[in-house]
Design a protein around this nucleic acid. Structure first.
Length: 101
DNA sequence: TGTGTGACCACTG
DNA sequence: ACAGTGGCCACAC
């Protein structure tokens, strides 16, 4: 059996997402060498303790949105953390803060 | 061993 | 742009 479970690999990949960048669940699954496991990536992140140091907020879905109900506390926290790293929510879409306007 | 469950995704109209 | 649909597959029970 693997010394590293898929869960371990996912943690590593999420941890490696640099500040200022975001990645989709499916993208992470593929990077782990497990294409088709996007849902599992979400399941793993869901188990993280609140005080986790993992940058889970840099993980959004393939549509460029947050995978939480807009009124939830998790949504608010992810939104806040992303905004602190140079992103903004344009409607429900996550967009890089930039340039012109 | 079998079934239900998703912090998903790609495709379609 | 948006909603519906089917597919996905490890995991918890």
């Amino acid at each position: 059996m693997p010394s590293q479970t898929l869960k371990d690999i996912i943690w590593q990949v999420v941890y490696s997402i640099p500040e200022g960048e975001v990645m989709s669940y499916g993208q992470i699954a593929r990077l782990c060498g497990y294409p088709g496991h996007a849902r599992y990536v979400g399941a793993v992140l869901k188990q993280l303790p609140d005080d986790s140091q993992l940058p889970w907020h840099r993980v959004i879905n393939a549509q460029g949105r947050l995978s939480f109900p807009p009124e939830s506390a998790s949504f608010a926290q992810q939104k806040a953390r992303l905004e602190a790293e140079g992103w903004r929510l344009d409607g429900s879409k996550v967009r890089r803060v930039l340039q012109s306007s």
